[in-house]
């Protein structure tokens, strides 16, 4: 697909979603955009995630295919690497935790280049994608935890602590929170990377651009709301607490930016289980990551194995012994006299 088509179609969809979200500012529609849509989005998100995870869990793994970067457990004098090539559940948990928390396999990314001295191919390690990804994910996590101030009363100490670290620069009022800008910068970098590298642009589809545009719009609307075009933050928390209490009253006069922000978040939640974003659940079901490298200790039985009709060599020779002897072929058991008599 032409990348302009992908880019523009994803952009148009997000623009339409922003326009729909702005309708939330219409008083008559506030119960729909403030209560019905968020609750529906949460239900779709939860049901979708459970459905996807069950689908993953139902898929059999035919082979032991863990990928390793270390020595498998073998003879006692060969040093075993228990995390890079785990042979126990504890090792698998350690490797999985490092993968999920630090994106180690992305850190091992390499780039091929031609050396400066003539046509000589070299492979060097490259961590730009890893850096963009880890900043993006941790900034997003920080932003989500900070938003828990809208759902806890009194606000949790953990949220205060995160805010203290996030706003440690103490610049301006309302105090600058680094995570929002880090999220926007990392998301922007991942988008530019997708557009700038020809191979990557070639394989990018609307469903690659759409989540990026959506998340960038959410981050941008959040930053606008916090620092520039103020919304009634007390009313926002009232609404959040109302929904959490299943009281469906919407406070008045929150501000249109909030309605756009909320609607885009609802779309993200509802879209999440049915898109590439489900890699967050799928990573737990990656056989290359979640299997122990114990192929020398245990035989992995393919769950869809069925009894195969076999014909052993002994049975084969019994069947054709006469003809084999006649043709001068060697046989394990010589032709006995009883058989010759027949």
């Amino acid at each position: 697909m032409n990348f302009w088509v992908s880019l523009i179609s994803a952009g148009v969809v997000v623009t339409v979603l922003i326009a729909i979200g702005a309708l939330g500012a219409v008083p008559a529609l506030q119960v729909i955009f403030g209560v019905a849509v968020p609750i529906l989005a949460v239900l779709i998100f939860l049901a979708g995630i459970i459905w996807r995870v069950v689908q993953y869990a139902r898929r059999p793994v035919p082979f032991a295919i863990p990928t390793t970067c270390g020595q498998q457990k073998t003879l006692p004098w060969i040093k075993h690497n228990p995390v890079e090539s785990p042979n126990s559940t504890a090792g698998v948990v350690a490797r999985m935790a490092l993968e999920i928390l630090t994106f180690r396999s992305l850190f091992r990314n390499t780039a091929m280049s031609l050396g400066e001295d003539g046509p000589k191919i070299t492979y060097g390690s490259t961590q730009w994608l890893w850096l963009g990804a880890i900043v993006f994910h941790y900034a997003f996590l920080t932003v989500v935890i900070r938003h828990m101030r809208f759902f806890t009363e009194p606000v949790w100490g953990l949220v205060h602590l995160i805010e203290t670290f996030d706003g440690f620069l103490e610049v301006g009022l309302p105090g600058l929170m680094l995570s929002g800008f880090a999220l926007l910068a990392a998301g922007g970098y991942l988008l530019l990377r997708r557009l700038a590298i020809p191979q990557l642009r070639y394989i990018s589809l609307p469903n690659d651009y759409f989540p990026l545009f959506l998340i960038l719009s959410i981050a941008a609307s959040g930053i606008l709301m916090r620092y520039f075009v103020k919304v009634d933050i007390v009313a926002v928390k009232e609404l959040a607490m109302n929904i959490a209490n299943f009281k469906f009253a919407v406070p008045e006069g929150i501000g249109v930016l909030f309605w756009i922000h909320l609607f885009l978040v609802c779309v993200l939640l509802a879209y999440f289980p049915f898109s590439k974003l489900i890699h967050s659940g799928g990573v737990f079901f990656s056989p290359t990551r979640n299997m122990a490298t114990n192929t020398r200790e245990y035989r992995h039985i393919n769950p869809w194995n069925y009894p195969v009709k076999i014909h052993t060599y002994e049975a084969y020779e019994d069947e054709f012994r006469e003809k084999m002897v006649e043709a001068g072929l060697p046989v394990d058991k010589p032709l006995d006299e009883e058989a010759t008599a027949q």
């Binding site: 998100f45 806890t152 009363e153 209490n245």
Partner: peptide, 8 residues
């Protein structure tokens, strides 16, 4: 994920 609903 649903903690806002049962914590309150």
């Amino acid at each position: 994920f649903t903690f806002p609903f049962w914590i309150n």
